[in-house]
């Protein structure tokens, strides 16, 4: 695929292809690329998930993903970032999120990549619903209380 067609900060219903994003962030100044894929887990707290449904406030989510990218480029100079999140129905082991970060050295690439997933879980308006054999529930991360954090 043509790397030029990639939207580096995107919410999409299509299956994610991690290699495209790795290729997108790789450049001659990079000495390290970290590629993170978040996948759908079958068992959570003893409950078996049949599949997940993701939903997003798409325009705001893409804006927030791009903001995370800018923050990373500021905090870890000379890094390049792509963050994409899939929405819709996802099966076990499907890839829900891909984060690719390149930087001159590996420490920054690891740190920036972890920063990205933590920010996604805090500020990006995307929700997941777990569908079990005997029910379903929208998941909300109760660790982050509104007003308690600076966005």
């Amino acid at each position: 695929m043509d790397a030029g067609l990639i939207k580096p900060f995107e919410v999409t219903k299509k299956p994610l292809e991690p290699a495209r994003y790795m290729e997108y962030v790789t450049h001659p100044g990079a000495g390290a690329v970290t590629l993170f894929a978040g996948t759908v887990r079958e068992w959570t707290n003893g409950k078996r998930t049949m599949h997940l449904e993701y939903e997003a406030y798409e325009p705001m989510a893409e804006k927030k993903l791009a903001e995370i990218g800018s923050e990373i480029e500021e905090k870890w100079p000379n890094s390049r970032v792509a963050i994409v999140h899939r929405i819709g129905a996802l099966a076990i082991s499907d890839i829900a999120v891909v984060i690719a970060v390149s930087s001159p050295h590996r420490k920054a690439a690891y740190e920036a990549n972890e920063y990205a997933i933590e920010q996604i879980k805090r500020v990006v308006p995307i929700w997941k619903k777990e569908i079990w054999e005997d029910g379903e529930e929208w998941i909300g991360d109760q660790a982050y209380k509104p007003g308690g954090e600076q966005y």
Binding site: I120, I126, Y144
Partner: peptide
């Protein structure tokens, strides 16, 4: 105006 419940992406 959007109502944003606790997010759970990733």
């Amino acid at each position: 105006v959007a109502f944003i419940p606790p997010v759970s992406g990733g």
